[in-house]
Every structure is written in C-alpha cells, then in structure tokens.
Design a protein around this nucleic acid. Structure first.
Lengths: 333, 333
DNA sequence: CTTGTAACTGAAATGGGTGTCAAATCCACC
DNA sequence: GGTGGATTTGACACCCATTTCAGTTACAAG
C-alpha cells in the first residue's frame, strides 16, 4: 500500500506539499503539482480515506440503521436515502439490521468515528426503545419514529390518518362489519393504524364494535385470519389488514374459498407494495411514499450536518394517500 | 467528543492501560479495570472506530458497489450479503450506485482505507469495463461478472444454461415459433441469455430462425414488443423475454388483446421476481437465487480476508432453476 | 535483605493523512 | 544591492486509538 509519504519522496517534495497538490489547493506551483501528480500516477497512489477522515473530522459517510425490513420497503428506503445523499458525495454505511434493541444500540455506537451522521429507524418504530443511546453526540434523524421528548428530528408516516382514510373509504363503500387484522402488538405503526381504525369506526358507526384479529405483518397471518373468518362463518363485509402482505394472502385465501373480493367482501391493506397493483383484483391500500420518506430524512440530516440548526420541533410527517382499486370497488380487474 | 485520553485521565491511568482495559485484555488488574470502566461509563465514552481501524489496519467493513438495480434484486442481494457478513460483525459500506463506469472506478477508489474488502458488481456485468482498476490492492470478489483474466474471484449466475432450459421447456411444450425479447445489447447477462436461446433453438429446431426483438429490461419494452407482435399479425406461439419485468408487461398487453397466455401463446421470463407468482397466469421463469449469490460472494470474500488463498480459478457459477408455472402450461390460475 | 521473575503499567512510536506556522524563495522596486 | 511583500514550501504537531518496548512494582525464593 503506497502512502502519500512515498509519493512525496518520489516527487522530491514534502508530504505537506504533496497533500496540497493532490487535493487541488491552488497554492502549489504548476510545475511542482505536475511532478507530484506524475509520481502519484506512477506509484498508483490512492488516498487512504480512513486516515484522511481522522484529521478532517469528517468521514463523508452517513450511517443507516434499519430493522429487519421486508424487501420492497427496504430497497425503496435505501433508494430514497441514496438519491438525496448521492449529490453530496457521501457513502452509506449500513449497520447491523437485525433488530433487537440492544443490538441496535450497539450498532449505533459502532458508528462513532465512521460516519458524520445517522439515520436510525428503531425497531418497532419506538424511539424510546433506544433509551439512553438518545444521548448521542452524533447528528441523527429518526426514520418512521417520533421521540417522545422531541429533541431529535424525525420523519415519519402518518399511520393514524392513513388508517382513518382507508377505513372511512370502506364505510363509504357500504361496509358495516369491518374486520381489522392488526400488526404485532409491540409495533407502533401497527397500534397507530389500529387506533385510526377504531376512531373512525366510532365516529362514523358509533354503535358497532370494532372486530380485531391479531396479526403479525406476515403472510401467514393473512391466511390464518381468512381461515378463521371463513370457518367461523363469521359475519363481515370488509377487512382492513394492517399491511398489504397480510391483505394479499388473505385475499388469495378468500378467493380460493369462493368469496368474490370487491363484491361480497371488500379488502384493503396498508403500504402499497408493488404487488398490490398486480394481484387480481388489485388491492386498495394506503400508499406511503417510502422513497420520499428516505430522501426527506436524508436531506434533513444533510442540512443538520451543514451546520443548520433545526429547531427542537423539527419533524416531518408524511401524509399517505389512498389508492383505491378493485378490491373495494368491485371494478373489473 | 470524549476520547480515551480523557477516560485515562479521569481514571488516573495511562491511555495504554485504558485501551487494554476497554478491550478486555486480561493483563489488567481487576481493580484498575473497574476504575477505568467506571470512568468510561461516567464520561459516556464511545470508542472512535475510525481511529481504531487506522492502527489496527482493519476496518471491519466491507464495501459493496452495485449498479443501479431494480428493487427486489437489490434488496435480495443486500440481504444475502448481510446474512453472510452479519456473523463476522462487519458493516456494509454502500458505494455510489449510479453506474457509469468511471463513477464506479471512482467509487472503488474512494473505498480505500474504509473497508477491508470489496464486493463489486460491474455495470452491464462486464468486469472488463473496470479496466485498470483491476490492479486493486484490496481483496475483491466480483458479483455476477467474470473477469477475462481469471485473477479475481467471482460469483455469477449461469445465464446461458438458464436461457437454454427455459427455451427448451417452451419447445417441449410444443412451441415452434419462439420469439425472444432481448435485454440491452451492452449487457452481458442479456447477451448470454440470447446465446442460450439461439443455441438450443439451433440444436433442437435446426431449421427455424430465431426471432429476436430488441428490449431493454424495462416494462415498456414488454409493452412495445407486445404491440409489435400484435400489430404485425405476426406468427408466433411463444415468447421468451430476457427478464421478468418485460415478460409481465408483455403478458398484460397480450391478455388485454384477447390472447390467452398459456394456451394461444406461451410466455416465459427470467429472474423470478416475486411478482411472477402473483400475476395471472403465473409466470414461468428462470429462478436465480440472488440471496445466495450475495451470500456466496460475501462468504468468499470473508475467506479471502481471513487469509485463505483462493486459487486463481476461484469462481462460483450458480445454476438457476426452472420455475414452471401457468404461463407455459395453461393450467388454471 | 538481595535478587530473580512475573505481572502490570506507562511513554512513545505508529497508522496515513491534514493544517499550522515558520522558513525559504522569488520578484519588484528603491 | 538591499528591502519589502507575496508566494511556495517544509517541519512538525495533531486526529484517536493500538501496540511495542521498556520500566515499575509485587512477591517469592535464596
């Protein structure tokens, strides 16, 4: 591994001059610079970013700590972050993504000295779970989580209003016995969505009780819920699943049992995964622009890093939109 | 930012001792260690990984340089890599993913001093395009690309035999006029797939000419190809698209035009994106285990890093499998 | 009470660059 | 030729931790 010292020696100058020349400081004579560049090229010199970032106190990398996400959500998030970060010429350092809380805290610590800033998505969307790690010395933006003591900037999706929207849509389409398949109890997104469902139900159909089947955001929960609903010969005319994954498999199962989704039973999900548009009937769902979630967070972090002081109340809540499709309208397709 | 020096001072010991204590070297007295740990906790000390990696000559990070991939491929790849790397406690540093060749070379260089090893997927699957960057001083494994001068280990998918398999399957199902929608001309995967198609066609149906429509791996190419085929009132009984993305949209377009896919025309793709199973009819395609591709490459790199000398011929070719579904069998669904 | 050995501990070198400050060089002008 | 000022250049401290090597201490044996 050739160092700048060797380049300097080969060019017959000091390391300081070599450093200046290679970093394009105009203070170096054209002649000297040429010598140095020739030597560097000759020796195939590549600067050691690690060493450089030590003195510069700047790594040009930002750390991303995500829980164990499913495919599309993950890649869209990364894409969004990357989009925002690309222009700034920074790298993305992915921390351990296997989300127990302790591991996450560890992952955050191991980022010290490697990155200039952090994008953290806490497991279960609960910033609190990060505990005293919140005393981070390093600029951080929370993804999809709100700190209770609003001192960390965040970007999150408005799960609550999304759930209200989609449930209200079901009501508007004539549904009265609306089942909700929830996400994991410990998950904040899940509980916000459930709350939205409960609230709008009470507001619009005060007299009916919410019907909630526990789920876990995974396919099998969709299947199980379908079985349960069918076997019990349960009375229901619509299902709002807390995410698309469950909705998709629930729908497949209902269809298999001869239920006409979109007519006999309306089904809606949450997330708008790409799949939602391709199954038949297409799935009505709540669309969150994950790419935008990622890029907004990254841009916010970039601003933070450039010294801009975001107020204590700095947070963005991204409003989801309703994607109405055939699974609740019965339209062909 | 508190440094180990401050911890040492607070504990009344030298930095050397502090370092030893904090790194669990048994050589330190229990009493001394306790003092140091107390001081560290008190000051909220977090080690500076950047500085540490400078002296250790080891960063515990591996660099990943991918071209601009579409969602699922990307996330599965990362997942595979992460799976293999997780146990080794390493981080993943994502380089610039916006793949012009020059940018890729730059991205590789900027990894020097940041990572212990590199996983590189060259744009267009052409290792050659990386040119003299191949004189890397840093352990590297190529993803989905073979170097012409087999001196860099690699892991890649056997596109050629995959294409042969799927084309042969179409022939076995009775197709005789098989159209191929190719990928971008400069893309190596695309040309290998095309070659597989050509070869098996010649071997099995010596007298028929291959029919090739140029594509680009994107949805619109699928739609365009469908239009072209339909408008010209072309005679064809099967289509093999060079990837699923094109196959899916082609199929949608054909279906819209009243063609019964799986009966009138057989359609097959390549990649087995999750979507393939969810559209109707389900798409016959070539399944490559991308997660395995990623994890194999990562494991190979890990072996390389642990000092193991992989022979000059170190390369793994992952054989894809054929996923036969309704789009070529006409089965219900 | 020495001496030898083992166990700890600390000063300083190291890793590969950058930035500061002082020294050296250059040139113009008196 | 000497002087002032502006440019360039170089020596060295520094970033923060690890590690070597030498020094200190403790303790047992002689």
């Amino acid at each position: 591994m050739v160092t700048i010292r060797e380049v300097a020696k080969a060019a017959g100058v000091s390391v300081a001059t070599a450093s200046r020349a290679l970093n394009g400081l105009s203070i170096v004579t054209a002649e000297t610079r040429a010598k140095i560049e020739a030597a560097a090229a000759e020796l195939n010199y590549v600067p050691h970013s690690g060493a450089r970032s030590l003195t510069r106190r700047k790594t040009d990398a930002i750390g991303v700590i995500l829980p164990d996400l499913f495919g599309e959500f993950f890649s869209e998030m990364i894409r969004g972050i990357d989009m925002a970060v690309h222009g700034a010429g920074k790298h993305l350092l992915l921390g351990n993504m296997h989300g127990s809380t302790e591991e996450t805290v560890l992952a955050i610590k191991s980022m010290r000295g490697r990155v200039d800033g952090l994008l953290v998505m806490p497991p279960n969307s609960r910033a609190e779970s990060l505990g005293d790690a919140a005393t981070w010395q390093i600029p951080t933006v929370l993804l999809n989580a709100q700190p209770q003591n609003g001192d960390i900037p965040f970007v999150s999706v408005d799960n609550y209003s999304g759930a209200r929207m989609v449930t209200e849509h079901l009501i508007d389409r004539g549904a009265r016995k609306i089942v909700h398949i929830s996400g994991p109890a410990s998950n904040r997104d899940a509980s916000e969505r459930m709350q939205g469902y409960r609230d709008i139900l009470r507001e619009r159909l005060g007299d009916t009780h919410p019907i909630i089947l526990p789920g876990n955001f995974r396919e099998d929960a969709g299947r199980n819920a379908a079985q349960l609903l069918l076997n019990r010969d349960f009375e229901f005319d619509a299902v709002f699943a807390a995410n698309d994954m469950m909705a998709v498999d629930l729908m497949a199962e209902l269809t298999r049992a001869g239920v006409r989704v979109g007519h006999d039973v309306l089904v809606a999900g949450f997330d708008d995964i790409p799949l939602a548009r391709y199954i038949s009937p297409q799935l009505t769902t709540v669309h969150s622009d994950i790419t935008r979630l990622g890029s907004s967070a990254a841009m916010m972090l970039l601003r933070l890093l450039s010294g801009e002081a975001l107020g204590a109340d700095a947070g963005i809540t991204i409003s989801p939109t309703l994607a109405v499709r055939a699974s609740t309208t019965g339209a062909s397709g």
